[in-house]
């Protein structure tokens, strides 16, 4: 057992009376990837901002690389790399200039800085654009440069806040490859995402946040087994029926996930009897479907079920 490289205890942040983060305790072992999964407003960015020393917690403690993020903020900053939701690079300068200047700010000599910049440009496939102004870069190139700049000082811990938001599928897969590589080199990665597939692909451990609290933590397999349900996915013949189907199934006490654009309705089912309930309902309501799939639980279902439980608990008070 190695010491955890990120550790928080009852971390809480209140904004104008709203608990953006509510007694979050977590622990991340060195060299692993923690995926923070949650909706917008679940507290993911607030947590990252506290760990990256950008925001002080209202109460609770957080340590990164064994250092308290409030008392030793400067030392923490020397050991982390942060890639936020918006590219933190200088648009007026070239990719090369951005990398070299950051390396120098971290204490590299000119020759070292240039060597490190070349190395990162090559690795992120930006060599041909090295001397172009960042202003002229595409979204994907900008994101890659932003990540490259975060890695200049070879940080022990890398925070990626929704790294693939706004990326096209090819860039996203490329990003996943890079993250996997960083971990094999010994870095610890904490990434936030709304994409369950991303957490499933990259994270060793997934922590699900909802309303500022941790609602579940585990490997993706563990989370799925907690829910332990299979799901029915229906593709309806007419998209207009989606709302009626969802309302009807909810009325039967089921959790329902819909996608109106694709005319799909999904619901977790416990046993074969549940499936029969769904079929009977559709028949009685005269809702026709084109396809029916019964699938093993995905993280979507896990997430849906966990956050729905929480919503119910909140209603009960």
């Amino acid at each position: 057992m190695t010491d955890p490289i990120i550790e928080t205890h009852d971390l809480t942040r209140v904004f104008d009376g709203v608990r953006a983060l509510d007694r979050v305790s977590l622990s991340v072992p060195r060299g692993t990837v923690l995926g923070l999964l949650g909706h917008n407003g679940a507290g993911k960015t607030t947590l990252v901002n506290i760990l990256a020393t950008l925001l002080p917690p209202t109460s609770g403690t957080a340590r990164v690389a064994g250092l308290d993020v409030v008392a030793r903020s400067r030392d923490v900053r020397a050991r982390i790399g942060l890639t936020g939701q918006f590219a933190a690079v200088e648009e007026q300068l070239s990719g090369m200039d951005n990398l070299v200047l950051v390396a120098k700010l971290l204490g590299a000599r000119s020759a070292q800085a240039r060597r490190r910049a070349d190395e990162l440009l090559e690795r992120f496939e930006l060599t041909s654009a090295a001397h172009r102004r960042v202003r002229t870069y595409s979204g994907g190139m900008r994101r890659r440069l932003d990540l490259a700049v975060s890695l200049v000082g070879r940080p022990d811990v890398i925070f990626l806040d929704e790294p693939s938001t706004g990326l096209d599928p090819a860039s996203r897969i490329e990003l996943w490859r890079i993250v996997a590589e960083l971990v094999t080199e010994g870095a610890t990665v904490l990434l936030t995402t709304q994409y369950l597939e991303e957490a499933d692909r990259l994270a060793d451990t997934i922590t699900v946040l909802a309303g500022g609290s941790v609602v579940a933590t585990g490997t993706s397999a563990e989370l799925k087994s907690v829910v332990g349900k299979r799901s029915v996915h229906l593709t309806l013949t007419t998209a207009a029926d989606v709302d009626a189907a969802a309302a009807g199934l909810r009325g039967l006490g089921m959790q329902v996930h819909t996608d109106a654009a694709r005319a799909t309705v999904s619901t977790p089912v416990d046993a074969a009897s549940d499936l029969a309930v769904v079929m009977r309902f559709l028949d009685e309501a005269r809702i026709e479907f084109k396809e029916l799939d019964l699938t093993e639980p995905t993280l979507d279902d896990v997430y849906l079920s966990l956050t729905a439980d929480r919503a119910k608990a909140e209603v009960r008070g």
């Binding site: 200047l101 700010l105 971290l106």
Partner: peptide, 26 residues
């Protein structure tokens, strides 16, 4: 090569060069 930061004079020098380059880039 793991860099952890540098002293104030160097920070000021590098940051000023950074700002000047941004300024004259336009």
């Amino acid at each position: 090569e793991t860099w952890r930061g540098c002293g104030a004079p160097r920070q000021i020098a590098v940051l000023t060069v950074w700002c000047l380059r941004t300024l004259v880039s336009d």
